Simulated scan of single mutants.
Amino acid sequence: MKKSNFLALSALCAAFAAVAAWVLSVSGSLPESWFRLPKWGISAVGIVFLLMLFIPNIIWSKKQPQNYEESAKRENKLLLALERAGEALVSVFVLIDRRLDSFSLSPRLGYLILALILMILYELYWIKYFRSSRTLADMYSDYCGFPLAGATLPVFAVFLLGVYACNVFLTAASIILGIGHIGIHLMHKKEIEK
C-alpha cells in the first residue's frame, strides 16, 4: 500500500474514531435509535447524496474508458450481484430515512460532515477523471490518497450516513455495496497492473 493511501485511510479512521469516542462520551452508550425503525419519508439529504452519486455516473456512461466493455465482461458474478444489491438497497434506504434530515448540534453531526467531505472528494475525483485521457488506469486511480477513489469514497460516505442516522439497514447495505463495488474495482485494477 502506498504511503499516501495509508495516510488517507488512517486520517479517515482517526476522524471516525474521534467522532465515535465523542458520541460515546456524551451519551455513555450506543444510541437507542440504532434499535428503532427509520423515520419513513423522503429525505432531502438522501436526494442530495443520490444526485452526487448519479450525475457523475450518468456522464461517465457516455465517457467510458476505452476497452471498458471487454473488462466488464470478466467481472466476478458474485461481486456483481453484491454490487447491484448494494446499489439498490443504498438508494432506497438513503432516500426514505428522514433521520438523515434531523440536524442538531451533537457529536453525531461529525459523521454527516465527514460523509459530505468524502462526497465532495468523490466529485473532485470525477472532475479529474473527465479532464484526463479517460483510460482504465485513470478510472481506477487514487485520489487524495484514497485508493480506488471512484469506489471507496462513496462507499465510505454512505457508511458514515448510516452511522449518522443510526440506521442499521443503511449501514449493512453500504457494507454489501462495498464488498461488491470495491471488489470489482480491485479486480479491474489488478488486470491493468498485469
Rank of each mutant, 00 (worst) to 15 (best):
F54M: 06
L30K: 07
V45H: 07
M52G: 11
I47A: 11
R36D: 09
M52P: 03
Q64P: 01
N76G: 12
S71F: 13
M52V: 10
L37W: 11
K73D: 00
V90Q: 08
S71W: 11
P38D: 14
V90R: 09
F16W: 07
A72P: 02
A72R: 04
R36M: 08
A15M: 04
P56E: 14
A85D: 05
M52T: 04
K63T: 03
A18F: 09
W22N: 04
L80P: 00
A14K: 03
V23D: 14
S43K: 08
P38T: 15
W22M: 05
W34R: 12
V19T: 09
I47G: 04
S43A: 13
A72Q: 02
C13F: 10
S33V: 07
K63N: 08
K62F: 15
F54G: 03
A18Q: 03
K77G: 01
L30H: 01
L30I: 12
G86Q: 08
P38W: 13
S29V: 07
Q66P: 06
S25M: 12
L50K: 09
A17C: 08
A18W: 05
W40H: 12
E87S: 01
E87V: 05
V26C: 00
I47Q: 03
A14I: 15
V90T: 08
V48H: 03
S27A: 12
Y68N: 00
L53K: 02
F49H: 09
L79A: 07
A72G: 00
K73V: 00
S33Q: 09
L24S: 07
K62H: 11
